[in-house]
Amino acid sequence: MAISVDYVVRETATNLRRNLLMTTAAILTVAVSLSLVGAALLLRQGVTRATLQWQGGVELSIFLNPDIAATQRDAIKTQLDAMPEVRRVAYVDQEAAYAEFKQMFANSPDMVESVSAKDLPPSFRVVPRQPELTEIVGQRFNKREGVKEVVYAEDMVETLINFTDFLQNVIFAVAGVLLLSAALLILNTIRMAIFARRREVAVMKLVGATNWFIRVPFMLEGMVQGLVGAAASFLMLVVSRGLIASALEGNHLIEQFVVSSADVMGTGLFILAMGALVGGAGSALAVSRFLDV
């Protein structure tokens, strides 16, 4: 039995109209579930963006031995000045470091009293032209004579970055599991619709209909449900992003997590593809259990 486009479209439209309640339920399930999946993905992008902001534009410090010879120190300064990767370099001697220390620990007078200028090493504060050049610059001075240690700003927020990395992974896992449970529930919804028409399917099989002849309208029905639900969630994400961005304007604490419109568009396209895939594959799997007649 050949499959005609006209038959498939007519059958799909009839199925959708007949099972209006189930269709609405499936669309709502897809919309809500995919909205959260999209929100989780956007949250992940927001965290990545914020992490990059912490890493970007920060400096590295080249700490020198307190007894470094002036010639060695000047040689390092000359080399740093000549490097095209370096945007800015500043020398902080022990006195300047101590003045900074007193300012930093103004609330801990005991700490300030227990430390003197000779306890703090002199250093060069280096700002590279691009964040990815930081390590290249640091590696050149790591084992240099007179250099005590090279400390990257990234090292200082390493624990925080580890935390955000872990949170990103958990969010991604939540999105994945949520998508799976949504797919299973859609499969159930479509299966219920097919279950209600199991006799019709059996009769069609008995009069010679092929499996694909029966399967395609159901698959298209699932895909339509998945796509409409995904489109609704896409719309929700776009609206929410606009509302959140305007609500957080001026709140520097959370503003850095706000994602761009391009991120929302990319996530939206992914959601649309997922909606079609989940709906189509779910209905194909659901109908296959009723074709073994």
């Binding site: 929100a39 965290v47 914020a50 220390f101 620990f105 306890d119 090493p121």
Partner: peptide, 25 residues
């Protein structure tokens, strides 16, 4: 997700205010 984001942002803000000093030793 919203609560986690707010808490994480709070930690970020607190960590930004922290000074780390490397001593001569």
């Amino acid at each position: 997700g919203i609560v986690s984001l707010r808490l994480m942002a709070l930690s970020v803000a607190r960590e930004r205010d922290v000074y780390l000093v490397i001593m001569a030793d």
